[in-house]
Simulated scan of single mutants.
Amino acid sequence: MLVVRPAGPTDFDALMELALLSGRGFTSLPEDEQTLRARLDLSAASFKAEVAAPEAWYTLMLEDLEAGDVIGVAGVKAGVGLKRPHFSFRVVTLAQSSPTLDKRFDHRALVLVNECAGWSEVGSLFLKPERRMGGAGRLLAQSRYMLIGLEPQRFAEMILAELRGWFDEDGGCPFWDHVASKFFRLEFDEADMMSASTDGQFILDLAPRHPIYAELLPKEAREVLGRVHREGEAARAMLETEGFRFQGLIDIFDAGPTVAARRDDIKTVREARRLRLKLGEDAYGEEALVSSSEIGGFRAVRAPVFIDGETAIMGRDAASALRVSEGDMVQVKA
């Protein structure tokens, strides 16, 4: 059985393995020991409510209980842009007209903005390639919304997700090569690592302050504005199913799109019900997403559940994976 559970300091080796597998451009999983260990420490403190709510960063691990193997990771950051700006490029239309010529021209332009300060973020979703089947990704992705729905007041009214931008088959990033690198004068991997492991002051210092006209960019760069990495299409589809939509914002390094939704409008947050658990036969009822009812002991599984009024009847194996007992409250998304 697969279970989503809180990450802790003992998960370092598993998290580093996932970071190494994630590849270029997966900024939220840097191959840096200090950064990952700090991330795990912060996650443990967040689940214990030992940090201020807006500063919490919850890291979730997807574990195969039978194999004792961690196969995926995801996260929820309660607040972005609080201690450092959360920069994006907004893709805007600038209209120019000439009464003399009786002509109007609309130009796409990239404008540096910091619009998402204070929003919450779902991200860091990554599974081992050989385990991307059988609903594992969906379980991991939806568990983030189950977590948010337990105590919505811990999170912002707007939830964003940043998707990795387009990279060529040879690993090159067209937007970085033709645009961003001109301002930062670094190798992509160095800038990506610094973005994840420093306070981001270099971005504040060097990011362009004036609009960049898309028509002046090479075709290779124009074509990838807001384009999702080939390995991110499934993640984008799952986000859109939950109600996330493109916001006209793209990443300043790889031009990947930012999608967002109102917290209370996210499908899983809206439809999950808090029910009292009753133990029954295994494989009883339709499969549903089920989580424990407290953030501190958060765990989530997909398992057969029969809903009878305000009662959720579920098998003992699933209850054991959730570490809940008969009579406890659980959260169920059918």
Rank of each mutant, 00 (worst) to 15 (best):
H107P: 02
L82M: 15
F87R: 00
V111M: 09
R90S: 14
P85K: 03
S98E: 08
C116S: 12
D102E: 14
R84W: 04
R108K: 15
D102F: 11
H86A: 10
L82G: 10
A109K: 00
T93Y: 07
E115R: 12
V91M: 10
V111P: 01
L94N: 03
T93Q: 07
S88T: 09
F89T: 00
W119V: 08
D102A: 14
Q96F: 02
G118M: 08
R84Y: 07
V92I: 06
A117S: 04
V92S: 05
S88K: 01
L110Q: 03
V113N: 05
S98F: 11
R108E: 06
G118L: 08
F105G: 06
L82C: 12
A117V: 10
G118A: 14
T93N: 13
R108V: 05
V113S: 02
L82T: 14
L94I: 03
K83N: 15
P85A: 06
S97P: 04
D106L: 06
A117F: 08
S97C: 09
T93W: 06
W119L: 07
L112Y: 08
L94K: 01
V113F: 04
T100A: 15
T100Q: 13
H86Q: 09
T93D: 14
K83T: 15
A95M: 12
L112E: 02
S97W: 15
L110W: 06
V92R: 04
T93H: 07
P85V: 01
G118I: 08
S88D: 06
H107T: 06
E115L: 10
L110E: 05
Q96A: 05
F89D: 00
S88L: 00
V91E: 10
A95D: 07
A109V: 02
R108L: 14
P99Y: 06
D106G: 00
S98K: 10
R108H: 10
D102Y: 09
Q96H: 04
F89C: 03
H107F: 04
D106E: 03
K103H: 13
R90F: 07
R104S: 13
L101A: 15
V92Y: 02
L112W: 06
A117Q: 12
Q96D: 09
K103W: 12
K103P: 00
E115D: 14
R104V: 11
S88Y: 04
A95P: 14
R108N: 09
R84A: 15
R108D: 05
C116F: 13
R84E: 13
G118Q: 13
A95I: 15
V92C: 07
H107G: 00
L101N: 14
D102N: 14
P85Q: 04
V92K: 04
P85S: 03
V113R: 01
Q96N: 10
L110A: 06
F105H: 12
N114V: 10
D106Y: 02
G118F: 04
S88I: 01
L101S: 11
D102R: 14
L82E: 09
D106R: 02
K83M: 10
H86L: 13
L101R: 15
L112F: 08
T100I: 12
D102H: 11
